[in-house]
Amino acid sequence: MSHSSLPAATLLGQTVSYPEHYDPSVLQAIPRLAARQVLGLTGPLPFQGADIWRAYELSWLNPRGKPVVAMATFTLPADSPNLIESKSFKLYLNSHNQTRHASADALRAQLAADLSEVAQAPVGVELQLEAAAMAAPALAELPGLCIDHLDIDVDHYSPAPGLLACLPGASTAEETLVSRLLRSNCPVTGQPDWGSVQIHYRGPAIEHAALLRYIISFRTHTGFHEQCAEQIFRDLMARCAPSLLRVHACYTRRGGLDINPWRGTPGTRAPAPSRTPRQ
């Protein structure tokens, strides 16, 4: 994604002061359309899905001024017109630190209203306050066959869909493949974004070594997490034509937030809640 497609006033890469009290004005929207047009995703979307954000540093004050801490999960639908810029999201959440809220339910409603307004679509909000709830989901690698052990030569470090291939004369297969070698870079700051990716498909058997080379090819790519997941989905559909496909990327946290976008063919079941050891 080019810098020119980003809002001129984006907070990414800038030194800013953290608001001391509730301030929804810091939230910034990034239209999804520009990046999707680059990928040729115009008209009806070929996928369903969501961007699942987890916040580990949420805190506010109760009516008597006592701090409350919690974890939160936010679900932004993939068909929302906007995604939310990550730095503005962090600033917004921190603006609640010294703000009194009548109850956790009142805060949940406020979060949902503010985020939905920016995304221009309903955003789901779950708060985990109890210790047992805050520990879930348990740390575990994404389920599936990890292909990272394959002994391959690699010489492409920018997205190369031409690397993808199916096995010669491949029959229909259904499998779940996982790699921990996904890396991309923030389009503004250039900072690396580290992640794992799970690909579940039904269709002509995909060559595992070819898929691993393709995943590694994102290593110097600049793109937001959500856009990378959509590009992987688009390329797999174009090159391998599976009848069923789900791409689930789990990126490590930055500033107390991790982002876990998934995209799947219509009717695909959402991935089970997961949290990798690196998250």
Rank of each mutant, 00 (worst) to 15 (best):
L111E: 01
Y92K: 12
E57F: 12
F89W: 02
A209V: 04
A55R: 01
A119Y: 00
F224A: 03
I152Q: 08
Y157A: 07
S86A: 07
K66M: 14
S25A: 15
H149V: 10
Y251C: 03
A72I: 10
H3W: 12
L142V: 08
Q98P: 03
L41S: 04
G65V: 12
P137Q: 07
Q98L: 10
L167S: 07
Y92G: 09
P159F: 10
L45P: 02
P67H: 08
P273R: 05
H21Y: 11
Y18M: 13
L12F: 01
G169K: 03
A136L: 15
C250D: 03
A70V: 13
T10C: 01
S274K: 02
P187M: 10
L145T: 15
E141R: 14
Y56E: 10
R213C: 02
P266A: 11
V197E: 04
C186G: 04
D148A: 13
S17N: 13
R36F: 11
T189I: 03
L163V: 04
Q279K: 08
C186N: 04
A102K: 14
R108M: 09
A132H: 12
L167K: 11
L107K: 10
Q231G: 08
V118K: 01
L150F: 08
A238D: 15
A136C: 07
T189Q: 00
I199S: 04
G65H: 13
T265S: 13
H96V: 10
P168S: 05
Q98C: 05
S179Q: 07
L58T: 12
